[in-house]
């Protein structure tokens, strides 16, 4: 699976300049959301974790970062089902996935 789904990126509105803008906004906001998730885990604020995961789920799907989106969806589901044992690991996986997305963006679209 590609880190970024090219088909989705192609369908986004606007030209390449707009795409760069979108990806820059995504990188900034996804970083904030990851930090919010990590802090939430550390502080046992599950609501904060869930809300950040929910937002990141849809915004990552929007830019075609489907793996990251899937991980966020799982985090959201774990909290909803109160299966919290793997939550920290899952957040770490999301962090890893986001790093891959950032690398892909930087190398392919934001040069």
């Amino acid at each position: 699976m590609d880190v970024l789904d090219v088909q989705i990126l192609k369908l986004l509105p606007g030209d390449s300049e707009v795409l760069q803008k979108i990806l820059n906004v995504f990188l900034r906001s996804s970083e904030e959301l990851m930090v919010s998730m990590e802090n939430g885990v550390e502080e046992h604020d599950l609501d904060q974790v869930a809300l950040a995961a929910h937002t990141l789920k849809s915004s990552s799907a929007m830019v075609g970062a489907m793996d990251l989106s899937r991980l966020c969806k799982e985090i959201e589901a774990m909290i909803q089902k109160d299966e919290l044992s793997g939550l920290e690991v899952m957040v770490q996986e999301a962090r890893q996935s986001r790093l891959l997305v950032e690398g892909e963006c930087q190398s392919r679209y934001l040069k």
Binding site: P13, G14, I22, R28, S29, S30, S58, S59, M62
Partner: peptide
Amino acid sequence: DDDPVSRLVMSESLHE
């Protein structure tokens, strides 16, 4: 929308 990404993309689409 609280998500800046969604906002931006939708806004772009609506502008178009």
